[in-house]
């Protein structure tokens, strides 16, 4: 058990180191002068000033030294300062992460609830299946910005039930969360139904029915758990990508968050922020895949040994 944990921790560190290294390499390989990006497009500075900045930031030192310095700072949790905002990137990310996490977790919770409802009720039943598959397909195919605008138009502008923009409070969370959740729910429901139907075709499902269990009891007590493994995989992956920033939805609803921050940083070539976002995503994925793996072992005791 301890050996397994050590192996896991080592591979997580390797992933993070890889992400950090790639981010550093990308920063070095991007064409253009870093100092120019630092100063912004509007300013022009003399060569002397530029050289001074280079020395101050250590850009004139050998690349290996810069790399080691960069890693050293990362270990201390120092992601550098934003070129544009002249503030520590770590602080910026910490500020923006909470609204994003709220949105992502609300959306995923809603999506899972919808998917479980849709799949458990309709799995293996011909009529219900057709209806459910139709809505799921529609939900998956909807472009999220269009769905967001549609929801805004109806519920905010016409009915005035929810605020149009902003990130404060529960009511501001509802529409963006629904916008994100619907396509995800469609996807999850299809995966879940497939898992349920595969499990229902297994002999143990017949055994359970032969004990006098109802259709629904067999689904809830037996097959749902079997369908959880693929569901957990997909949900973990989706949660990870949402925490990395739901750019479109955050933009449509004018919410603060990692997505909005990323958009801003990319358009301004604010590389320390971009690198910070990349590293944040890597951390999020490592943590989530650890959680999902732990969940596998809880759900399916046969996987514990591996």
């Amino acid at each position: 058990m301890i050996a397994v944990l050590i192996r896991r921790a080592a591979s997580a560190l390797a992933v993070l180191l890889g992400a950090a290294t790639l981010a550093f390499a990308a920063l070095e390989l991007i064409p253009g002068d870093k100092v120019a990006a630092l100063l912004g497009p509007a300013t022009s500075a003399s060569e002397q000033v530029k050289a001074q900045i280079r020395a101050e930031y250590g850009f004139d030192r050998p690349i290996v030294v810069q790399y080691l310095h960069y890693l050293g700072r990362l270990v201390r949790g120092d992601l550098g300062d934003s070129y544009q905002l002249s503030r520590p990137v770590a602080g910026l990310l910490a500020e923006q992460l909470w609204p994003t996490a709220q949105l992502a977790l609300a959306a995923i919770a809603l999506a899972v609830a919808l998917a479980v409802l849709s799949a458990v009720v309709t799995a293996g039943r011909r009529a219900g299946r057709a209806v459910a598959t139709a809505w799921e397909l529609a939900a998956v195919s909807l472009p999220s910005f269009w769905l967001g605008i549609l929801l805004l138009t109806v519920f905010s502008f016409q009915l005035g039930m929810f605020p149009v923009v902003g990130g404060e409070g529960i009511s501001a969370l509802v529409l963006p969360a629904v916008t994100l959740a619907l396509p995800i729910a469609g996807m999850l429901a299809q995966v879940l139904r497939e898992g349920l139907e595969a499990a229902l075709a297994q002999p143990f499902a017949v055994t359970a029915r032969a004990r006098g269990l109802s259709h629904t009891a067999v689904r809830v007590r037996h097959t749902l758990r079997h369908a959880t493994v693929p569901l957990a995989t997909l949900t973990g992956w989706l949660t990870g990508s949402l925490l990395g920033g739901a750019v479109l939805v955050e933009t449509v609803f004018g919410r603060p968050g990692v997505g909005a921050l990323t958009l801003q940083a990319v358009s301004n070539k604010d590389m320390p922020v971009v690198i910070g976002v990349v590293l944040l995503s890597a951390v999020v994925f490592v943590v989530i895949s650890a959680v999902v793996d732990a969940l596998y072992a809880v759900v399916d005791p046969r996987l514990k040994a591996g």
Binding site: P203, F204, T207, A208, A210, G212, R302
Partner: peptide, 20 residues
């Protein structure tokens, strides 16, 4: 089912719920 008539299938590895 189960109360008056019991059913035993082949291969308990898949006829018992492997996750329980």
């Amino acid at each position: 089912r189960g109360r008056r008539i019991g059913l035993v299938l082949q291969d308990a590895l898949v006829s018992l719920d492997p996750l329980r």
